[in-house]
Design a protein around this nucleic acid. Structure first.
Lengths: 143, 143
DNA sequence: CAGGAAAGGTCAAATAAAGTCAAAGGGGAA
DNA sequence: TTCCCCTTTGACTTTATTTGACCTTTCCTG
């Protein structure tokens, strides 16, 4: 059985889905009454399910005519993304291995991961994800 | 003589077989009561019989209204590709690290790579690629 | 302007699950 | 029989949910 928090979450997501501006505005007490729960339950749902990490931004105001507004962030447009081909990535890995930043086992692991068979996506997306992975690896080496 | 673990295993597999989406959701305590055993026995069965290696992915939530969901991966079906959420992948990596298959540095590297920020794709694709990566890693460990 | 009413916010306690881990138990192969 | 590996258990840990008492902010009215 789904929890109350789960049900409130879906309810709100449906409202956002149906809206034409990807946002919804509610009254905390009202929603709490609808679901027969404590108002702080709504706050809890917001804090656990509608975080920035999940792609949501919330805004609220206390006092008379107070409200809670939840907005779903639209994914940024990815028309002009960076990318790395498999061979390029392999070169980078070889370099990192040669300079001792990666052990041979780590290099082996990475070469396997950035393979085009593994990153089974359309070429554009594949190169983009490969770029993201390599960027992450390099960042780790530096940090 | 079939062991308790064996019987729990078949029971779950029958449930999965009968379901139309190749998955089953249970409550650990409930199932333990059905079989009159310790709840951790269920965890044991999951850990030994429903591994990624066997083609299963499990997902769970603690706390109120917690659950355990077991899904059988269908590798051939394109419309319903297998996927692994970040938390699940992290669990696998932790496991591989704990059992000495991965060094802590390798685990660190992998955890960074399978992060949702890095695999910047729609959730479906992201989970799919994460699955492909984890599959590759596990194959490497076995080979 | 003061004060009350009408919001939402915070936090910790109570409760409900699942996870971990080490130790004990048991059964089959050598 | 003995040993090893797989099972089984239970005490302890971690995480998630739900509620309620109390706090803060904002608006409105006299």
């Amino acid at each position: 059985m789904r929890s109350l928090a789960d049900r409130i979450e879906s309810y709100l997501k449906v409202l956002i889905e149906r809206s034409d501006n990807a946002e919804v505005e509610i009254q905390r007490v009202e929603l709490a009454e609808t679901f027969r729960c404590a108002p702080s339950q709504i706050t809890y749902v917001l804090g656990t399910r509608f975080t920035l990490d999940e792609g949501f931004v919330t805004e609220s105001k206390r006092g008379g005519r107070g409200f809670i507004k939840i907005r779903k962030l639209q994914l940024e447009d990815k028309t002009d993304r960076p990318g790395i081909a498999q061979t390029q990535a392999e070169n980078i890995i070889n370099e990192l291995e040669a300079t001792g930043f990666l052990t041979s086992r780590e290099a082996l692991l990475l070469r396997a991961i950035i393979n085009r068979e593994v990153l089974d996506l359309p070429t554009m997306d594949r190169d983009y994800i490969r770029y993201r992975i390599m960027k992450t690896v390099i960042n780790l080496m530096e940090g």
